[in-house]
Design a protein around this nucleic acid. Sequence first.
DNA 1: ATAAAGGTTCCGCTAACTGGAAGGTCAAGG
DNA 2: CCTTGACCTTCCAGTTAGCGGAACCTTTAT
Lengths: 143, 143
Amino acid sequence: MNIGDVSRLSGLPAKTIRYYEEIGLVEPMRGLNGYRQFRERDLHKLAFLGRARSLGFSLEDCRSLLALYEDRQRASADVKRIAQEHIERIEKKMEELRQMHRTLTHLVEKCAGDHRPDCPILSDLAAEAEEEARKGAGMPCHS
Amino acid sequence: MNIGDVSRLSGLPAKTIRYYEEIGLVEPMRGLNGYRQFRERDLHKLAFLGRARSLGFSLEDCRSLLALYEDRQRASADVKRIAQEHIERIEKKMEELRQMHRTLTHLVEKCAGDHRPDCPILSDLAAEAEEEARKGAGMPCHS
DNA sequence: ATAAAGGTTCCGCTAACTGGAAGGTCAAGG
DNA sequence: CCTTGACCTTCCAGTTAGCGGAACCTTTAT
């Protein structure tokens, strides 16, 4: 199979597949013409990677997961740990986003959104900024 | 004020402040010794930026928000639109994360997490990958 | 005089690709 | 046989928002 075929079959862009080869995630053979020759196993790996990526795993996690997948002696605990750490990262991120979302929706609600310049969003960004500066170290207005 | 002072007052690392100058978000003056000299207004801007960044706005959004903030003729609608688009990006991201989280927690629940190699997480990554390949174009097992 | 604590620039690195340029290969059609 | 178009190759540059460090200069205090 050429790269176009595996691209279609795996759903990954050819560019991405080349990149994955560059960083050693797959090692396709080469034909006499210099074209990459993918075996069934490479396709399988790439699809695995695509799926893992779609769950948000980093490429380094993907590398580990792939290694575990190919290791018959693996302990499922190792896989589970990677997944759990990832879940924690996701939860942390979601909490951050929730926080931002709350603040932003409050601000947006208060903003008229018309032709006038008065804007609680900007006021908040400016006012809270000033407050931060103030509490930061007693406002040194003497510059 | 030197960069260390604004760094402490704004809460932004000095590196970040230099970077913001590089991309034109602030324009501190320079002393005879080559040191950056920040005015009250620069500090104000930087604190504004820090606050906007903490709400997740991109630096490009920050640039726009700052421009609007300094434009007395602005329409609050412009600010509101930027904020709403950002909210939408956040919601989209949260939905993605929720989806990942759901799948991952299901998989982790099913995984024993012991010394044995059997692992539903890996099976899922592999199986669903195969399924994708299969439905992608009728499984060309003849490589 | 010197040492510490600031400041400066410049270079390289991060994650995970994406886009484009310049060029080689292959199959089909005239 | 030549050309066209689709496909493949490598390499270079850019993306986001900075971080880390080296080499060097300035200020301040001892």
